[in-house]
Amino acid sequence: RKWEEIAERLREEFNINPEEAREAVEKAGGNEEEARRIVKKRL
């Protein structure tokens, strides 16, 4: 699934746990840019 690939990239890029990465992607509706913004806000 594409969402899992996005979550994996976010996890590696921001050094967050898989659960946090998945939550961000879900919140963003699968949009990678939006997920990235969500993760950055949390850091």
Rank of each mutant, 00 (worst) to 15 (best):
R1L: 12
R1A: 13
R1H: 11
R1G: 11
K2W: 13
K2L: 15
K2T: 12
K2I: 14
K2C: 06
K2P: 11
K2V: 14
W3A: 06
W3P: 05
W3H: 07
W3D: 05
W3N: 06
W3C: 05
W3V: 05
E4V: 07
E4D: 13
E4P: 05
E4Q: 14
E4S: 08
E5V: 08
E5Q: 11
E5N: 05
E5T: 06
E5H: 06
I6H: 02
I6S: 03
I6E: 03
I6A: 04
I6P: 01
A7M: 13
A7N: 03
A7Y: 07
A7L: 07
A7Q: 07
A7C: 15
A7R: 04
E8S: 12
E8M: 15
E8K: 14
R9D: 05
R9V: 05
R9P: 01
L10M: 05
L10D: 00
L10H: 00
L10F: 02
R11A: 11
R11I: 14
R11W: 11
R11F: 06
E12Y: 15
E12I: 15
E12F: 15
E12M: 15
E12P: 02
E13N: 03
E13S: 04
E13A: 07
F14K: 01
F14N: 02
F14L: 04
F14Q: 02
F14D: 01
F14W: 04
F14V: 01
F14E: 02
N15D: 10
N15V: 04
N15M: 09
I16E: 01
I16H: 01
I16G: 01
I16S: 02
I16K: 01
N17Q: 11
N17W: 07
N17K: 13
N17A: 14
P18F: 13
P18N: 10
P18T: 11
P18A: 13
P18L: 14
P18D: 11
E19G: 08
E19T: 10
E19L: 10
E19M: 11
E19N: 10
E20I: 12
E20R: 03
E20T: 08
A21M: 02
A21E: 00
A21I: 05
A21W: 02
R22M: 14
R22A: 10
R22E: 07
R22L: 14
R22S: 08
R22N: 08
R22D: 05
R22G: 04
E23C: 05
E23H: 10
E23R: 10
E23M: 11
E23Y: 11
A24T: 05
A24L: 06
A24M: 05
A24D: 03
V25F: 03
V25Y: 03
V25P: 00
E26Q: 13
E26I: 12
E26G: 07
E26L: 13
K27L: 15
K27S: 11
K27W: 14
K27E: 15
K27Y: 10
K27P: 00
G29E: 13
G29Q: 13
G29P: 00
G29W: 09
G29F: 14
G30K: 02
G30S: 02
G30D: 02
G30P: 01
N31V: 09
N31D: 14
E32S: 05
E32T: 04
E32C: 04
E32Y: 13
E32N: 03
E32D: 03
E32W: 14
E33G: 08
E33N: 10
E33Y: 14
E33M: 11
E33W: 14
E34Q: 09
E34Y: 07
A35Q: 00
A35D: 00
A35F: 01
A35H: 00
A35L: 01
R36Q: 04
R36A: 04
R36L: 04
R36V: 06
R37M: 10
R37Y: 04
R37P: 00
R37V: 08
R37I: 09
R37W: 05
I38S: 06
I38N: 05
I38G: 03
I38F: 05
I38R: 06
V39E: 01
V39W: 02
V39I: 15
V39F: 03
K40D: 08
K40S: 10
K40H: 15
K40L: 15
K40M: 15
K41M: 13
K41C: 13
K41P: 03
R42T: 15
R42F: 15
R42L: 15
R42W: 15
L43H: 06
L43R: 11
L43S: 05
L43F: 11
L43N: 05
L43Q: 08
L43Y: 08
